[in-house]
């Protein structure tokens, strides 16, 4: 990341993409896709997050360690949510 300067054009493209995705996710929410509504909404959110981290937060130029730190955060959030849901999902089984 040291010294790497992206062009204004790159940033503008990402910014416009983010705005378009916001419009898309809002519009799609009004269409009945059944259970897919949640999936679409979260996928778009994940794409937006990736755009912001990779470009605006310069992660695509950053060190492996930074990427490891971010993966660690994601993994631990997953541990928190998945293991807790393991309780809630299996409560009705007995």
């Amino acid at each position: 990341m040291t010294g790497h300067i992206d062009s204004v054009k790159t940033y503008t493209t990402v910014w416009i993409a983010l705005l378009i995705l916001t419009a898309v996710t809002t519009t799609v929410a009004y269409v009945d896709l059944g259970p897919l509504n949640v999936v679409v909404a979260l996928t778009i959110a994940a794409v937006k997050m990736l755009l912001v981290t990779l470009f605006f937060m310069h992660v695509r130029h950053s060190t492996k360690l930074t990427k490891l730190v971010i993966s660690g955060a994601t993994l631990w959030l997953a541990i928190l949510i998945v293991l807790t849901l393991a309780d809630y999902i299996s409560r009705g089984w007995l």
Binding site: A86, D87, S90
Partner: peptide, 15 residues
Amino acid sequence: VWGHHLFVSGMSLYA
């Protein structure tokens, strides 16, 4: 392993 503090608190038996 945190769930081992919840064995008798109403957590699901499977968890």
